[in-house]
Write a protein that binds this DNA or RNA. Structure first.
Lengths: 350, 350
DNA sequence: GTCGCATTGGACACCGGTGTCATAAACCCG
DNA sequence: CGGGTTTATGACACCGGTGTCCAATGCGAC
């Protein structure tokens, strides 16, 4: 329809020159106002700011990017099987970016490929990204961190343990969180507790496993190797991994699954076998994804503050740039909470 | 491949001038090579291309953006309650963008707010976006489409019906898909079929409702108003909406829920009431989200090709730009498939 | 041999900001 | 009241590309 661009001009597109002319100053002075340069007369600043406000002028980010050799873009690099997690992270980061001039550019990668590194390098250098947030398990790759450093690209890694200094890391304490969850099972009277572990090579899997073992050790409960089954963080892997646990005699009375997808798989497998949850089997998952409340019974799980962590990561990145309340140090370590729903009960007979 | 250059240094950062010097031509000639200008000597082109290839030179996108007044960024605008859908769409778009110089910038908005329009306008004009993909329900907003047009911003709208010409629209045929699903229920022998409708103001909700009514009308089945319950596309709304359906006498023997979340709610409510699924109640959902296979019994549902549609949308946008196999016309209309799982069975008694 | 035309390449301004440095005005002190 | 210092502002080049326009070259035609 509106193909004819008439008086309905496609936006005024004011430039710094227009503002300079209107204010009767040089473009450099306008630039100083925009960049909050301290060596500026109050009066001049006010005058220019008034003009900017009433014209609604906004500096062209492309020109700034060119002049500064750096874009106002934050990249999000991930290769994550967990959709919910990725989306929440995006939300958290965007919350922090909201109201700033930064935008979020997303970049899923394939960590299996042998040019991931080149791929990411190209991404950050071509776009002259201001910085990137890296999600697990990519974030566990130290070579990647080193490369980003070399490229002069700021970065923040998300993870389940501190793998880097506070400036470059936002972490949750998975080990302690899992230990808490397992202590809860123990407090309910469980003694034969199975673990569905996450995939090898995932730091989170390792941390969660250590938390699991820690709680049992504390309580003086021995842990036969047979009570640990390997999973891949997928529903199907949880389903099949629990089979081996169900075949045990005596059967475990509780299972901790290293994430919710696998916990849902355990629940499903239990139903297939006619094992009543929670009467005959207690289950705890990890992540607090929506699936936990869609199944029956709703799954107890561990919730970690993904959105808040995403926000913190973004603030760490841009904190230096916006430099308003300059030193609002974002926390680097976040703790998780056990969410009690209907999938845990004391064991039937002990 | 071109791994010749040192792995160290914070990137060589070649410019068009360097290439021009190395090739012994002017920068404009290099520019012509990059932009595939036809008025160029074969010999010159080959020479310059060789240099570009062996140095690994990549033009600076910021400079191009400034000179062209347009960025190589695609925006994704959405206000969608369905996480899975958003993520799949991102995936589809990124698949199409892969290997091009385009990047994806995401922009969730709040369609309730009364400055959404200004927000989006600012987004596309400030960043000089090449184009945007708009997801439902934002895509149903014609004023938004008009505004984007005025701003000279390309756009493609995703939706559940053709609301615009093929150039600007990628749609699934929800009405027909739902009709098929309901025909399936009728073929199984169901006559009292309930509908959990989507929220008013969502075109998809309307289309799905019309498909539902269409199938019943075809079969000569009357549809009392009481068999339609309003939902909000959320699990909770599906849960509570189904209560009113369960209170009916006689109770419906099947329910079509306008999306999977609500279908999961129906299933949950059924379990709370001790209604056996599928023996006493058949359920069909819509979207084929992962939750359908996590619950028991797994839910029959309608699958629509989100990823393929995202890919098509992105290709429509950039098609003109890459202009290689110039006229690879992407389809605009996609059809959906009924996925049969365990939540449908013939009614117990009729 | 000269002219006209098509083809190819380059000089230069420009996109809209920022950095550097010079300079004018204001200030300070002896 | 002059010289040195500080402060506020502007002129100008520059970031790395692209568009415009003109010059050089080659070649056939007269």
């Amino acid at each position: 329809m509106a193909k004819h661009k008439q008086e309905e001009g496609p936006a005024p597109k004011l430039t710094i020159n227009d503002i300079a002319r209107l204010a009767g100053v040089s473009k450099k002075t306008v630039s100083r106002v925009i960049n909050r340069s301290p060596l500026l007369n109050e009066e001049t600043r006010d005058k220019v700011e008034a003009i900017i406000r009433e014209t609604g002028y906004v500096p062209n980010p492309q020109a700034r990017a060119l002049a500064l050799g750096r874009n106002f873009l934050i990249g999000l690099v991930y290769d994550n099987p967990n959709a919910q997690m990725v989306l929440s992270m995006q939300r958290g980061i965007l919350e922090a970016l909201h109201g700033t001039e930064f935008e979020l550019v997303i970049r899923p990668v394939d960590r299996g490929s042998n040019h991931v590194m080149d791929d990411i390098r190209g991404f950050v250098t071509r776009q002259r990204l201001f910085g990137v947030v890296v999600l697990p398990p990519m974030s566990e790759n130290d070579a990647l961190a080193r490369m980003l450093d070399e490229q002069g690209c700021r970065y923040v890694r998300m993870g389940s343990a501190m793998l880097d200094d506070a400036e470059h890391m936002v972490a949750s304490n998975d080990r302690e969180a899992v230990a808490d969850a397992v202590r809860h099972l123990i407090a309910q009277g469980h003694r034969r507790i199975g673990l569905i572990a996450g995939p090898h090579g995932f730091r989170s899997a390792q941390e969660r496993r250590e938390g699991f073992e820690m709680a049992l050790t504390e309580a003086g409960i021995s842990l036969p190797r047979s009570l640990i089954a390997d999973g891949q963080y997928t529903f199907e892997s949880g389903l099949s991994a629990s089979e081996s646990l169900f075949d045990l005699t005596p059967r475990p009375t509780a299972i901790f699954a290293s994430n919710d997808e696998m916990a849902a798989g355990v629940l499903y497998a239990a139903r297939l076998r006619g094992i009543a949850v929670p009467e005959e089997l207690s289950i705890i998952g990890f992540d607090d994804t929506p699936v936990t409340t869609r199944v029956w019974p709703p799954l107890s799980t561990v919730r970690w503050p993904i959105v808040a962590m995403g926000r913190a990561a973004a603030l760490k990145l841009i904190g230096t740039a916006i430099g308003e309340g300059a030193d609002v140090k974002e926390p680097s370590m976040f703790s998780s909470t056990l969410i009690r729903r209907g999938s845990v009960a004391p064991p039937a007979n002990n």
